[in-house]
Nucleic acid binder design. Sequence first.
DNA 1: ATACCGACCTGTCAGC
DNA 2: TGCTGACAGGTCGGTA
Length: 287
Amino acid sequence: MPELPEVETVARGLAKHVTGDVIESVWIGSKPEPLKSPAAEIASTLEGARIAAVGRVGKHIVIDLDRNSGTNPVPGHKRQRGKKPPSISRSQFIVHLGMTGRLLVAEPQTELVKHTHLVAKLASGRELRFVDPRRFGRLSVVREEFQAAGVEPLMMDFDVFKALFRKRNTPIKSALLNQKLLTGVGNIYADESLFRAKVRSRRRAGTLTRAELQRLYDSIKEVLAQAIEAGGSSVSDYVDAAGEPGFFQLHHRVYGREGQPCLVCGTPIKRIVIAGRSAHYCPKCQK
DNA sequence: ATACCGACCTGTCAGC
DNA sequence: TGCTGACAGGTCGGTA
């Protein structure tokens, strides 16, 4: 489900509702784990921690945690007379929503839905819940600052973007989906960006002209920004941290519009399969 | 090194 | 009313 705009929307919603709250206890389901870290390590890292901030890196939600660990001073620091030892330890809880993952803030009396895999009880009385029917989502905890492999589309400048595709023989659509190049663009926004840039998804990445790359660069930033503004795209079941859908699907020009007329020229939109993913485009507008 | 393809899961919907 | 097959916002590992 969620690509950069949806993840950003969830992260902003969580930031608003849980920043500063303290995790009192954690329940993790026994299903074959949607976990990258062992359940016990996730639980022990979360329990007792304070949520310092919530952000996004690529398609990952990053929850910054601190905890007082006065009894357990940071190694390597000498205790000085009259000063307390360093006593805050930091870690991060990383959530990838996969296709159908949801991270929700709920009141405790709200019924637990099927496929709930984690519930964190907060000091405020609310609960942070992770729900994921297909279990493609992933949960982990890290001690160091989490980093994504690829470039953040909203931060990159044109020269960095352009260099990603040089001499690449793969279809431009596949290159946009490759998270080691760009991090955060998924199937919807790849198709929508390519349409706005008037570039066909099957074009070999390395063959795009400078002008085409410039249009694609502009389109990606524009589409992502507009989608964030609209709260993301709700195609089947995406909802934000408060359970509310997004509205950018109303602005899709090609994604999910197979057979319908192109909004620019009226030609029916085509759907093809590239590397196992569907790709939607206008055969007349996109070259 | 690079690029495709199936596998991983569950749910939904169209067609018979 | 089933049943079957196609498809779904993502990523990984194996293979060519």
